[in-house]
C-alpha cells in the first residue's frame, strides 16, 4: 500500500494502519452478511429452476470476503496510513454526533434550528470567530435554504 495518498501523507505511516482496519471491518460485515443471509432474505420456494433472491448476495459477499482476505495478505508487509491524531478523530466524532442529534431532533426542534446549530458549531470548530461569518452566515444560509425549500420547491421541511 502506498503511503502518500490524499490527506494520509501528513499523518505518517504505521505497520497496521487504516487500510488493515478497513479490510477487517469489511471482512466482518461480509461474514456477518453471509451468516445472517437466511434470516435477512426470506425465500418462498415454488420449485422454480434458477437462482433465488439469496444467490446474488451470497456471490457478492463471498467475493467481498475473499477480496478483503486477499488485500490483508497481499499488503501484509507494507507500511500503511497511520490512524491519525486523536484530536482530529475527536473533532470528526463530535461533528458526527452533533449531526446525528440534529437528525434525531429535527422533527421536534425544526429544520432551521438544528441545521443552523450544526453550521455554527462546524464553523466554530474550523476556527471561525468573526461574528459575520459565525453565527450570521450559517443562520442566513439555513434560513435562505429553508425559505427556498418551502416556497420554491414545496418541500415539507420539519
Amino acid at each position: 500500500m502506498t503511503t502518500n495518498r490524499d490527506a494520509s501523507s501528513r499523518q505518517g505511516t504505521s505497520r497496521y494502519g487504516l487500510q488493515s482496519w478497513i479490510c477487517i471491518g469489511l471482512l466482518i460485515v461480509a461474514v456477518t452478511g453471509l451468516v445472517t443471509l437466511h434470516d435477512q432474505v426470506t425465500v418462498f420456494d415454488f420449485g422454480d429452476p434458477g437462482p433465488d433472491a439469496r444467490f446474488f448476495p451470497r456471490l457478492v459477499l463471498w467475493l467481498l470476503t475473499l477480496g478483503a482476505l486477499l488485500r490483508l495478505w497481499r499488503y501484509r508487509r507494507t507500511p500503511e496510513t497511520a490512524i491519525g491524531d486523536r484530536s482530529g478523530w475527536l473533532r470528526v466524532i463530535l461533528v458526527m454526533t452533533l449531526m446525528g442529534v440534529a437528525v434525531a431532533t429535527m422533527n421536534v426542534l425544526g429544520f432551521v434550528v438544528t441545521v443552523a446549530a450544526t453550521g455554527i458549531f462546524l464553523a466554530w470548530l474550523l476556527g471561525e470567530r468573526h461574528w459575520l461569518f459565525n453565527p450570521v452566515l450559517p443562520i442566513a444560509v439555513t434560513m435562505a435554504i429553508a425559505w427556498a425549500g418551502r416556497h420554491m420547491l414545496n418541500l415539507p421541511l420539519p
Binding site: 453550521g119 464553523a123 474550523l126 450559517p138 435554504i145
Partner: peptide, 11 residues
C-alpha cells in the same frame, strides 16, 4: 474553508 464547509454541510 471555514466559510465554505459549514455552508456545504447545510446544503
Amino acid at each position: 474553508p471555514r466559510h465554505l464547509f459549514p455552508v456545504i454541510a447545510i446544503l
